[in-house]
């Protein structure tokens, strides 16, 4: 698949933003590390809103005909993309109301505040599920047609959220022991989940050029693709990555997405140096961005069989 930056940003940033919201809810519900004070809470909510908005705006930028974008909410009965839009929009009023509530009352975990906060958190989590399902329902792309996709989106969105909150606490010098522990656990879980996913998609399977053409008992080779230059189909679906290159990019991805953030958070909490907290956040966002890029490039749409690929 074509790794369009706009769609990469959609799940990367909005997933991270919803992760921040969900983690804020958990931290303030349970008063983890003493809970976030009003200022920290507002920073976290604003960060969540900014992340989600980056995701939403870049996904709108991806549309070829954005003037009809408002129609995207209409088919929520069948389309996960429509459902994602509905929940993403529903998240805003609750997040903004909670922000205003904290601003005006300074109450981060009174009943009214907590109701708003938890609703925003839960709606965010539902949106992440819808985002995963956008990809997971496609039978045309074996690498996406698995429950591991929404599971990966969850654990990585939450890992970004926990890293951001832990970093925030380190930067302002507030106690962050439990939060860093949560972030480390989520980062490690993400690394494992991604490993499971890579193992899963590395096994051959899915339609072949034989079933695509119906010559099930013969070898089939492409002679001519039938077009002079590229087409929409080759542009959108033709991207591939050699196995060697994919492996080295995965190593880079693991280092930036998981190894550096884990190390930086540990050093950050031990030394109290805010520079390490910043490194953790930038590194995890960049690393998971690379992970999303791989997610697209490695997805092999079955239409490639009609352009000569033997198996997808």
């Amino acid at each position: 698949m074509h790794p369009a930056l706009a769609v990469i940003f959609l799940t990367l940033f909005s997933g991270g933003g919803f992760g921040i919201m969900a983690l804020t809810a958990i931290v303030n519900d349970l008063q983890i590390d003493g809970g976030l004070n009003p200022l920290q809470t507002m920073i976290a909510v604003i960060l969540s809103l900014v992340f989600v908005s980056i995701g939403m705006l870049s996904s709108t930028a991806h549309l070829a005909n954005p003037k009809n974008a408002w129609r995207a909410f209409t088919r929520w009965r069948t389309s996960w993309l429509a459902r994602e839009g509905v929940f993403a929009v529903l998240y805003y009023p609750f997040a903004v109301l909670y922000l205003l509530w904290v601003f005006f009352t300074s109450g981060t975990h009174d009943v009214a505040g907590l109701i708003l906060l938890n609703l925003a958190g839960v709606i965010g989590l539902i949106t992440i599920f819808c985002q995963g399902m956008i990809y997971a329902v496609l039978r045309t792309i074996r690498q996406w047609n698995t429950a591991l996709v929404p599971a990966n989106f969850y654990v990585m969105g939450l890992a970004i959220g926990a890293t951001v909150l832990a970093a925030e606490r380190i930067i302002v010098g507030a106690p962050a022991g439990t939060l860093v522990g949560i972030a480390l656990a989520l980062l490690a879980a993400s690394a494992v989940m991604k490993g499971i996913y890579y193992f899963w998609i590395s096994r051959p399977g899915g339609p072949t050029i034989r079933t695509a053409t119906g010559f099930n008992r013969s070898t089939v080779r492409i002679l001519e693709q039938g077009h002079t230059f590229g087409t929409f189909l080759t542009e959108e679906f033709g991207h591939t990555l050699s196995a060697a290159k994919a492996r080295s990019i995965k190593v880079i991805m693991y280092i930036f997405a998981f190894v550096i953030p884990i190390a930086a958070l540990v050093i950050g909490i031990v030394t109290g140096q805010s520079a390490f907290a910043w490194i953790a956040v930038l590194s995890v966002v960049f690393g998971i961005g690379v992970e999303r890029w791989l997610f697209f490039v490695e997805a092999q749409h079955v239409v490639n069989l009609y352009h000569g690929r033997q198996q997808c």
């Binding site: 053409t213 010559f215 070898t219 492409i222 002679l223 693709q225 039938g226 077009h227 009609y306 352009h307």
Partner: peptide
């Protein structure tokens, strides 16, 4: 679109 394949050996 018309593609062209070689089927069999």
């Amino acid at each position: 679109r018309i593609r062209h394949f070689e089927v069999g050996d």
